[in-house]
């Protein structure tokens, strides 16, 4: 899955990669530690066509030659793929089960969550982290979050998720210690959902 890169088309990444990736990571860490909290990554550089700023920032911060990446078919072969390959150098895979990270921009046509790696009993950390780009992190149907990282409860209203997605997330939680983890991005914003979070769908 690798073609020659045309360097002329590659947009720049962090002007100061050390500082930039540290700042992004701290926000992402806060998100993973406090499910439902939304952080702003407006300080990150522009990402190429098809990727929002927050999605690009997460990729620059977490992907490298040691992480196997599953890219949404929409991104494959395009500017975004070239940008990620140039700046992060990760090997790409078409097999969601093999991926350390999946970068999803079209969640409606993405494989079911169970197609990704859930980790194994002794090493549940070897599971896929899905980075899912949505139109907005607000305005969608509400779900209530409880569990580690949450004092009482949080609500999240992610927009653009297909029907049945939250049921899949619930099933993902039910099989803890196995499971995938999520980083949701939209525009400049980011939030995260570890497998440990219990989801209650409003109206259930």
């Amino acid at each position: 899955m690798s073609a020659v890169l045309d360097l002329a088309d590659i947009a720049p990444a962090f002007p100061d990669p050390t500082r930039g990736s540290q700042a992004v990571f701290r926000k992402v860490m806060e998100c993973m530690a406090r499910p439902g909290v939304i952080h702003d990554l407006a300080f990150a550089p522009d990402a190429p066509q098809g990727l929002d700023r927050a999605a690009g920032a997460v990729a620059l911060t977490l992907f490298d030659f040691e992480t196997l990446i599953w890219l949404d078919p929409r991104l494959r072969g395009g500017l975004a793929e070239g940008w990620i390959r140039f700046h992060c150098g990760p090997p790409l895979t078409g097999d969601p089960m093999a991926a350390a990270f999946a970068l999803v921009t079209d969640i409606a046509s993405a494989p079911a969550l169970t197609a990704f790696n859930m980790g194994d009993a002794k090493y549940p950390d070897r599971s896929t982290t899905l980075v899912i780009q949505l139109p907005s992190l607000e305005g969608g149907p509400q779900v209530v979050l409880t569990g580690p990282g949450i004092k009482t409860e949080m609500t999240l209203a992610l927009a653009g998720l297909p029907d049945g997605f939250w049921a899949q997330v619930q099933a993902n939680h039910e099989q803890f210690q196995f499971g995938v983890d999520f980083i949701f991005v939209a525009g400049d914003r980011v939030t995260a959902l570890p497998r440990s979070t219990r989801i209650t769908i409003k109206g259930d």
């Binding site: 990669p17 050390t18 990736s21 540290q22 990571f25 992402v28 860490m29 993973m32 530690a33 911060t61 977490l62 490298d64 030659f65 040691e66 992480t67 350390a100 090493y123 549940p124 950390d125 599971s127 982290t129 580690p148 990282g149 803890f176 210690q177 983890d181 570890p194 497998r195 440990s196």
Partner: peptide
């Protein structure tokens, strides 16, 4: 180095996602 930091950062995220689990 930055690559080592990324490796550790990824482990931190998994450790937070699986509270109490020892991530190598």
């Amino acid at each position: 180095d930055e690559q080592t930091k990324r490796m550790i950062r990824r482990a931190i995220l998994k450790a937070l996602a699986i509270p109490g689990y020892q991530a190598p």
